[in-house]
Amino acid sequence: MAARPAQPRPAGDGKEDAVKGREAPGPAALHDCRVVESRPVGAYRLISFVCREIAAAARPGQFVMVRESGPALDPLLPRPMGIHDIGSDLISILIEPVGKGSGRLAASKVGDRLAVLGPLGRGFDLQKKGQAVIVGGGIGVSPLKLLARALAERGRSMRLILGFKSRDQAASAGLFRDFDGEVFTEDGSVGSRGLVSEPLPGCLLPPPEGEPAPEVFACGPGPMLSAVARISSECGVPGVRTQVSVATHMACGVGSCQGCVVAAAGGYVKACTEGPVFDAEELKW
């Protein structure tokens, strides 16, 4: 048997092993991305990283699976994060630190490297015409920026309704200053006091003669989505469509593990490949 190497080598995963020349080159699905921006936005943190390929391909409502690059095995898996915005070669995500994985990602500093898979999932369908009513709750506002931008480019008139628990969450409404948003907080500290579901019925009115019905786009916590789905299905205006983006626990993000399912009319569906955006009427509420 050969002599032991003089220096013990860390047992990293393949990606990191490459640096030490112990990995054969091969196709890489993961992008190794450098963080170029990391700043607090109230209770959340905005992180931007460089990835031309994802920036070129991403559509509103899609997500990425992100983790720290490196051999550390805790946190073990990447976390799903909605794509907040894109530049020519930049991706921005907005993170609410709620636990181990999101907390570590939110602590990323400029110069850190992230391992990123994406863009993933079925985003919002932008085919329809008619007034867009965009409803976001809490960290669920994140992917709505890219959506609002895409709808604006298509010349769709829109109403943007953003709801938060408190002032520190509502700071993220500042990210939407290009759009004319209405802000609601549960404690009344910013904007109007109340829930986003309150102004919704007033947005879902019959369109003028010959115009298409309004369309709702929503992302936020489960109870908010179910309220939105109920209100739009009961609004009485024919042809109203509601698209919702759901958040579930994910392991793979690519349809392999069956862990991310949500209940739909015909059984469970995978949020990572069949969603995360669904027609509200497809899902069981």
């Binding site: 995963d13 112990r22 091969g26 890489a28 898996l77």
Partner: peptide, 18 residues
Amino acid sequence: TASFRDPLLAGRLVGGLE
């Protein structure tokens, strides 16, 4: 489970094993 960290990891570990 490691495939969830990186779906194409296995192919690259072969060289490392060698």
